[in-house]
Amino acid sequence: MGLKRFRGRRLIAALLYTGMGFPPVVIGLFVYLLLSRNGVLGSLNWSFLPKLFTPAAMVVAQTVIAFPLVAGFTMAAVMGVDPQLRQQLLSLGATPRQAAVTVLMEARLGVIVAIAAGFGGIISEVGAVMLVGGNIEGRTRVLTTAIVLETRKGNFELALALGGVLLLLTFLANLVMLRLQGKVFDE
């Protein structure tokens, strides 16, 4: 996307950017409606489609939420790389694939930001996973939905502890990503 100019590139970019700003809970609603037994896809009863209130359904929703974030930020990062670079890599004997990999490497700061944004979007998600997963204990309950539940029940201490775990997880994940950015970031 970032590398080539083609018909419909603008449209796809516009869709991606819209997707980036889309309320996750609405995406959850769409996935819910699609997968529910009376929904467009659910009524087809295809076996490879995940059933509502299963972890697989949550993965579907989360993927739909994260994809525009990751793709959009990655595209922006790659477009920020001078197009002359690709030309010079090809001249040095890179195959189109090798050139794409190198350009991604050059944009690694932005690519990691993209992954971090996707991760952040997913791990903090409440509404969509609640809708699609159903917050079933031991099956589709995740940290965020558990926090909501425990707070409602008045178990503030447990909710706080869970919140701490969530924070720690997010922090660790971002630490790993910072390490990946490594030297580039230090400059």
């Binding site: 001078d82 002359q84 670079l85 030309q87 010079q88 001249s91 040095l92 004997g93 190198t102 490497m105 050059e106 580039v184």
Partner: peptide, 16 residues
């Protein structure tokens, strides 16, 4: 064959 030819441009784009 293509790899036997290489160019150097006015504005060198070096890798980081």
């Amino acid at each position: 064959k293509r790899r036997q030819v290489v160019a150097v441009f006015q504005r060198p784009m070096l890798l980081n």
